[in-house]
Nucleic acid binder design. Structure first.
Lengths: 182, 182
DNA sequence: ATTATCATGTAAAAGGTTACATGATTTG
DNA sequence: CAAATCATGTAACCTTTTACATGATAAT
């Protein structure tokens, strides 16, 4: 699926691996991420498949940049993937819930420390998500052709923000529950 | 992490691979899942590490059952993992959000079909989650020693139920938004 | 008759992480 | 003076998926 994330981003503009990593961290970060090494490998594979082409831009003082551009075959592959319906609720993996599920083994204080830490982290994530609404607004102002895109970016951002808010509320409730009854 | 999920389940009772798969599908399913083939491989690895031991129970008419039991080393490894704090918000991957993020490329009808389908699926998941509250209650009634465990199982189930409810609400809002403005 | 359940596994491939290797420039 | 940023990549390893292989019993 990373393949399509990269095609999707490169459909907006050519980029190098390093920029793709940054772009993804700041935009798709809360629903799709990848390590730099994986991005470099996947770009190479996509070029091998003819979905991207790369061009080396020499630089002084810094390593040369290898800039990837999507091909017509790449755009076609992206559209095909977008048109495929998702016929299942994709199963997710949540390490915190897994650990909590088995945590009757550990003592109350350790458990509460764990939950408080997660509460702090999710509160921070929530604040970051609220801030990124501004970035989307700016993008449309600078390029009104992106209005449709921005509508969906904002919907996706909303999903992230609401889900972080819910997580914080759930952690508050769970902390109270553990304090009272564990 | 599957390793610890398996140790966690086997800490309650010895089981074979097939039973572990069924147990996980019905209990940890919405926050941790694995394919049967991976479960068999991981059990073998855990036995090689001395965290489990297996015993073959011959059966007539059916393949013999290989039943795994957690060892003292296994319990220690489980407790060590449970005590480790989670110091980050674990990044998640959500195919629907990824696809939606790039969906300005496809037409309105295809997009709405996609969203309605997901709405149906998440509504079903929500109903299933509500039903499993009963199973937890029954488990404590039959074995009151599991009261602490059940408190956490119910907290985790709540997280799943609330998150499915949120997803359905968000899909309703997003469908309205796309209908009106896309 | 066909499908689901019970039950085990192997092998190949794909996806993803961690560690290694290099090195100048800029910011604190 | 140390850390972050820019910039590319390889190699080993681990995790996960998909496909293959087998076969009886029970339910529809």
């Amino acid at each position: 699926m990373l393949k399509f994330a990269l095609l999707g981003v490169l459909n907006y503009s050519p980029m190098n691996g390093y920029e793709l990593k940054q772009f993804m961290d700041s935009s798709t970060g809360h629903f799709w991420y990848a390590k730099l090494s994986q991005i470099y490998m996947t770009l190479k594979t996509l070029e091998g498949d003819g979905l991207l082409i790369s061009e080396v831009q020499p630089q002084e003082d810094r390593p040369d940049r290898r800039v990837y551009t999507i091909t017509e075959a790449g755009r076609a592959a992206l559209r095909r993937w977008l048109a495929e319906p998702l016929t299942e609720v994709e199963p997710t993996k949540e390490p915190l819930l897994l650990k909590l599920f088995f945590s009757a083994q550990i003592d109350k204080d350790a458990l509460l420390t764990q939950l408080h830490l997660q509460r702090t982290l999710h509160q921070q994530a929530l604040e970051g998500m609220a801030a990124s609404a501004q970035i989307i607004k700016l993008a449309v102002e600078q390029n009104p052709a992106l209005a449709k895109d921005a509508l969906l970016w904002e919907a996706v951002r909303q999903a992230g923000e609401r889900s972080e808010r819910l997580y914080v509320e759930w952690l508050d409730d769970t902390i109270k529950l553990v304090q009272a009854q564990f």
